[in-house]
Nucleic acid binder design. Structure first.
Lengths: 181, 181
DNA sequence: GACGATAGTGAGTGGTGACTCATCTTGTCC
DNA sequence: GGACAAGATGAGTCACCACTCACTATCGTC
């Protein structure tokens, strides 16, 4: 792949992330091209279909989520690592909500449960560590944790919530996970 | 209003409910007209704008939910009424996706104030009563409660959750709402 | 049953957005 | 530094969709 093609591909992905983040679900490919400083044809050379572009964005998002989990298992405080993972995942989901919604509308295997399924082991590890230091009630099970995580992400997809509200809502869920008293 | 006009209005609303339920909010007005057995012009005579049609549908559906809340305000136990409302709505949502799909549409492109406002009032009342008898932490706010409610419903839409898991997940949220100790 | 008012009709309009392709430009390799 | 393939360009095509309007049909009333 030629150097300029590589550079343009990266610029298009970055531009697409921005455009879909604040332009809403009706943002056009033309707008992505404009923000990337590139012609429409170039966008379509790299991503033959708008869905392909969205897929590429999603792949990027999944990579970030996976890295988050691995990072928190390796370096996080066991008492807060699971909560931190919740918060990070919800924020990333909210930032990419247009992408997720559009892909879901295309009937593609991209709902937030898909990636979570493959992350089950990682979340289980974070949960076990939290319970090991008494930060999370011992009777909490993995399936409940995953369900709660899915709910939080799906809720964040609804839009109209600012960062502060998402944070406060998560705090209520966290309170439900912690030992009482 | 003439009798045929009244009849058509009702048929259009019913058709729209079906069409938007399985086609999503991007389904065309033409399709709604076709399913209602009516010409496009007729749809636009009753609802000058597609957004007006969506608004009318949401108003109808949210009214049912609000009635649920009103019933619990009138006859429910203040200590459990809010939790009962959560459980009732979540179980309903698991069977009927239309409300949530249209709520998603609201988040995307249609703004509405009336019905949502009154639902908010009803939930606020349930929340205040729960706090009044010490069943819910006093610092919990209405917007957090609504966000939690949305999350729970969205989560319930994910396939593969049985009644038991939905119940256990809700119990964690309830634990987060109750005073600790 | 005649008549005005109200409602319904559906081809047409305008605008938008995904995608194409003939043509020009640039990176790479010898 | 020349040749040539890979890449970029952007006006143009096509399909779709919200919405209109001149005309027709139907209702309610006397």
């Amino acid at each position: 792949m030629r150097a300029d093609a590589q550079r343009n591909r990266a610029r298009i992905l970055t531009a697409a992330e921005e455009v879909f983040a604040d332009g809403g679900p009706h943002a056009s490919t033309e707008e992505v091209a404009r923000r990337a400083g590139v012609a429409v044809g170039t966008v379509f050379r790299h991503f033959p279909t708008k869905a392909d572009l969205l897929r590429a964005l999603m792949k990027r998002l999944l990579q970030q989520v996976t890295d988050d989990a691995a990072d928190l298992i390796a370096h996080g405080d066991p008492a807060t690592a699971l909560f931190d993972f919740f918060a990070r995942l919800v924020e990333r989901t909210a930032a990419n909500r247009t992408v997720v919604i559009l892909l879901a509308a295309e009937g593609m295997e991209v709902s937030i449960t898909g990636p979570l399924g493959s992350l089950g082991d990682a979340v289980g590890e974070l949960l076990a560590r939290g319970q090991g230091v008494g930060a999370i009630r011992p009777e909490i099970r993995l399936d409940e944790t995953m369900a709660l995580l899915t709910s939080a992400c799906q809720g964040a997809l609804q839009g109209g919530w600012d960062h502060d509200l998402r944070r406060r809502t998560l705090d209520i869920m966290f309170a439900g996970l912690r030992p009482s008293g």
